[in-house]
Design a protein around this nucleic acid. Sequence first.
DNA 1: CCCCCCCC
Length: 606
Amino acid sequence: MESLTTGVIADIVDGQHPENPVVQILTMKRIPNSSQERWRLLLSDGKWSNSFAMLATQLNPKVDSGAITNNSIIRMDRYVCNTVQENKKVLIILDLSVIMTGAEVGKKIGTPVTYDSSKIAAQQQEQPQQQYKAPASKVAPNMSSAGGNVARIPLAQHNALAKGSCVTKTPSGGNVHPIESLTPYQNRWTICARVTNKSTIRTWSNSRGEGKLFSMDLLDETGEIRATAFNNEVDKFYDMIEVDKVYFISSATLKTANKQYSNLNNEYEMSFNRTTEVTPCHEQTAIPTMQFNFVSLDQLESLQKDAILDVIGVCKETHDLSHVVMKSTGKELTKRDIQIVDTTAREVRLTLWGTQAETFDGSQQPVVAVKGVKLSDFNGRSLSVLSSSCVQINPDIQEAHMLKGWFDNGGNVAETVNLSGKGGQAGSIGGNFKLIAEAKQNTGTDQPEYFCAKGCIVMIRKENSMYTACPRDGCNKKVVDQGNGMYRCEKCDQTYDTFQWRIMLQACVADISDSQWISIFQDQAEQLLNTNANELGALRETNKDDFEKIMDAILFKNYNFKLRSKIETYNGENRWKASVMNLNPVDPQEHSRRLITEIKQLTGQA
DNA sequence: CCCCCCCC
Ligand SMILES: [Zn+2]
């Protein structure tokens, strides 16, 4: 039997940092109510056990793939141990090797007991806690990137690697904290982080005031976080902060991140305040220049519109520059559309703007990676680069080399599905057509299912089809009418002098097999009713007849629906619920073609 | 404390 490093858990809790300890995972628990996937591990060294360990999120795939399970014996190749709140210790595993799989071990080794935490408190006075362990040699891709510009990195350069190690001490001799350990409940901390992206200065003016701000993305070996500086802090820090450089940052305010605007892998974000200090770090570090959380292109079909994502693909087609005029301001913009493709045999349109559009060279069919791109439902699915996005051309990362290899060895001529190919009204809405009765059979999973159905709207609930919602964009929470012309949003904890109408329509859809009440929300309802929610809401108040006419106009017409279904539980009872993600009027030719294909398949002719 | 990110 493979041996554990007996007693090592006590050593770590007591502030030592033994090299490469070997421990057993007794149990793994996903931390609930966390917006990101995060695993807590109960570790044993055969003598002691403790549930203070968490897996760095970049190691999540090891759980998801089953590489580590209960009973696995692992070597912690890199880890950090920190004190959070009072005396609580948190150990984050940054790198591990599986020594024996859980299946091979098959049982708990020894009879470990929980290492006593009261002992920890006593130890803390005497023993300085140790922080990062310097890894033997960790290489980081040396890759430049910039918010406003396309970083051009030829693949040939791809072994220009910067060696470095973890920075463990702040300039004043204190301990460096991992980004991953930051919470709003923690006061004194200093991180050592690379700025991977930096915005320009923007000003704002609204009912709550006005000011200026800029934001940046920070990365260390454990995680990433967005930070924003306002007003005085803009003056103080904007010039000194440079993309790709590493800084010690201390004492900023942490708050819950709004995932609507960022996909950084952190449930918090940071605002600089009066006490925030930023000092350049001149030591060599092993912090990567960028961290991506890619989704493959085939996932775009089932992701929500407006989601912020990281994507990577080979540019198989580059369109010419074009100019568009903004509807709101009349300002002219330059844009360029490109098609990117990946190994899932999907391609999607990606729109670049401004300088990035102008300087893009697609002639060599480069790999394009974008961190923080916005998903839209235009022509089915398409992607648009934001000012906060980071675009990299031929980044020196494994995924890029793999994709280019695939593309140059047949991927370039592989048949692909164009996710952005649903031009205009008549377009199709994708595959996986089901009858309603068929779809309702799928009750064995609590995961959402996505499918298409052709159906006819036979009934709608016009009452309660609209509600007054918070005027703040993207909040959508129903407001409470204060009766004095003011409307309160509990979610924003704000009172506004206005609201916006939103639609939440229940429609009964029938096909040849069955019928089902489904939900149709704002965007899809506006498309279906051919109106906008605010106009429709006003109409409901002023002219009920016309309101009903607009509603009734959708009855007894056939649509192709893309639906999301899920089993939901009400008072212990399971219900099959579906909502519309996408819809189109049925194009008879296309419908017929689909039926012919299905008939051929059924009769074995296809 | 922002949260705009465009067009077809
Ligand atoms: Zn609100």
